[in-house]
């Protein structure tokens, strides 16, 4: 685990850059993590996905699958990949300050 200083606040992140404590998350931080991962600006559509991932994790304790992300977030699968080309579920989890999704789907 490493401690990274982002936006002058120090947060704990794992080797892949996922926050280890979701409580350390902020919207400002989300924007910085997005930029680190090649997303210059988070649009409303990005935010919809990020917030859905985060809410789902905080209420159920696990991140949604790509299947339910596509069905329930309000953003269809095709668009998810346009918004997060390097993998919607993982990147949205990283930006949303929750651990890396563990499922295979």
């Amino acid at each position: 685990m490493t401690t990274a200083t982002i936006s002058a606040t120090s947060v704990d992140r794992d080797a892949e850059g996922f926050l280890t404590d979701p409580q350390q998350w902020s919207e400002r931080l989300a924007e910085e993590i997005a930029r680190e991962n090649g997303i210059e600006e988070l649009t409303e559509r990005h935010w919809l996905v990020v917030r859905f991932m985060r809410d789902r994790y905080l209420t159920t304790g696990s991140a949604p699958s790509i299947r339910s992300l596509g069905k329930e977030s309000g953003v269809p699968v095709k668009e998810l990949y346009q918004l997060f080309p390097k993998g919607p579920a993982k990147l949205a989890a990283k930006i949303g300050g929750i651990p890396k999704p563990k499922g295979c789907i």
Partner: peptide
């Protein structure tokens, strides 16, 4: 465990690129 039936899965992978 959220694995879709084959027709839906084919659509999912195609939509995923």
């Amino acid at each position: 465990i959220d694995i879709p039936p084959i027709p839906e899965f084919i659509e999912l992978v195609a939509d995923s690129g």
